[in-house]
Design a protein around this nucleic acid. Structure first.
Lengths: 235, 235
DNA sequence: CATTAAACGGACCTCGGTCCGGATTCTCAC
DNA sequence: GTGAGAATCCGGACCGAGGTCCGTTTAATG
């Protein structure tokens, strides 16, 4: 019943240093044997190409293996499962986003008042989600695991920290979950694609939501929150 | 590419009469040929038994077919796919819940002030979710469809209606989605099972959330909202 | 170069989902 | 009643994709 493959091939190292973060080669690329590292790179490149060509939904593991001229077992050894592979594809942009709200310039990063950072965080997250919607949806984990992966915990912790500064007497864990729920990629997809809502409306909704949850006054309307370049072009 | 099986075997008739609802044999049991109806009942019974014995996560379609002494194709013809079968298992209790908030006694049903109904709705939904957590999680649809099935739309519409009465100037569609997010079974599962939060805390969080979103005063604390018998014993 | 731990690859398994020839039930004329 | 005829349903062989296993190969170490 147990696999011979290592159970957690990609430790997804976040949370070792909750408020610090190192970009760069990052844990998963070092400490690998030369051939393993080479194959990992090949696989990611092949997967990215196939996703770009045919979309993430129709991506099969065998196709990735074949496109990378590698055995199927190798794909699973490296990335654990399909979701792991898709997650790895998202990882780079994910790290950039984390860096932006953990240590980047205000209002997203430290330096601005907490309510303003909350507002900026939501808008940035929305814009970032919209860019990567397809991958985000394809990389979603099952219902049991959806709330536990490190990136989610990190954002959650970030929201909790900001909320504590604004509404110290509230149940900030639950408020944070509520806010996270609003940013769920699947919801964003549904509202924009199925319901035809423009992104602006979602952003306005976020601003309003923050105001209500923190019982603060909403900022003067109409001015779009300024952030660094659209959060990052895909590559 | 297209199936020979009828695409929507279980029309899930809700929303024909947005505020009315008929319990009873309900559409999916009538208009079936005798053998089909018999097999449908067999399959549901077999599935329920297997879920009770081994859990919903390990349920396989072949096992259900075998346990019902029926061919595999029959299961798929009747329920469309795995999720459809699990959804059918939930359907009965789902209908009861709908009846309770659409037409049952206050504060859940009509007759109480809207804010009170909002509070009652959340608490009822939480209690109901906890009872059926396993099935709810197993019956969850993929990211693209999670927000579209009729029961979800019905609850969503209900929340929108209540919100409009309390905060007519707000973007009630988005506020409703926010509230729905808080009630997501997967989130409830995570908070109770992974984080060890007691249900009371989630309910208090809901009460607080409603108060903040509607910018109303929270009710006097401590009194548990009274509802009909724990929403319904499983069978 | 020998040794060893790690990586490789593809056959293999399971399970969800599809297909279609044949069996069953319903309808309706007689 | 009853006996076509038509519509529906049945069942299990079949397929594709995710995921596993294990004998073989290969890179690191000294």
């Amino acid at each position: 019943m147990s696999a011979s493959l290592p159970p957690i091939p990609e430790p997804h190292e976040s949370l070792e240093s909750p408020e610090l973060l190192e970009l760069g080669p990052s844990v998963e690329e070092q400490c690998l044997r030369a051939d393993a590292a080479r194959n990992r790179a090949r696989l990611l490149e092949a997967a990215a190409r196939l996703v770009a060509e045919h979309g993430a939904a129709t991506l099969t593991m065998e196709a990735v293996a074949a496109a990378a001229s590698v055995g199927k077992g190798t794909v699973f050894r490296r990335f654990g499962d399909r979701v792991g592979l898709l997650t790895a594809l998202l990882d780079h942009s994910e790290k950039k986003f984390q860096a932006a709200f953990l240590g980047g310039p205000p209002p997203l990063g430290p330096g601005a008042p907490p309510v303003e950072r909350l507002r900026a965080f939501g808008c940035a997250s929305l814009r970032w989600s919209v860019e990567q919607l397809e991958l985000q949806l394809a990389a979603e984990r099952g219902p049991d695991r959806r709330y536990t992966p490190p990136p989610r915990l990190l954002r959650n912790g970030h929201l909790i920290m900001l909320l504590r500064q604004v509404v110290p007497d509230a149940d900030c864990e639950l408020l944070a979950q509520t806010l996270m729920g609003y940013l769920d990629p699947a919801l964003v997809h549904h509202l924009t694609k199925n319901c035809g809502m423009p992104l602006d409306r979602l952003e306005a909704g976020w601003i309003d939501l923050v105001a209500r949850l923190t019982r603060t006054d909403p900022p003067p309307t109409g001015l779009r929150i300024e952030l660094a370049p659209a959060v990052e072009p895909p590559c």
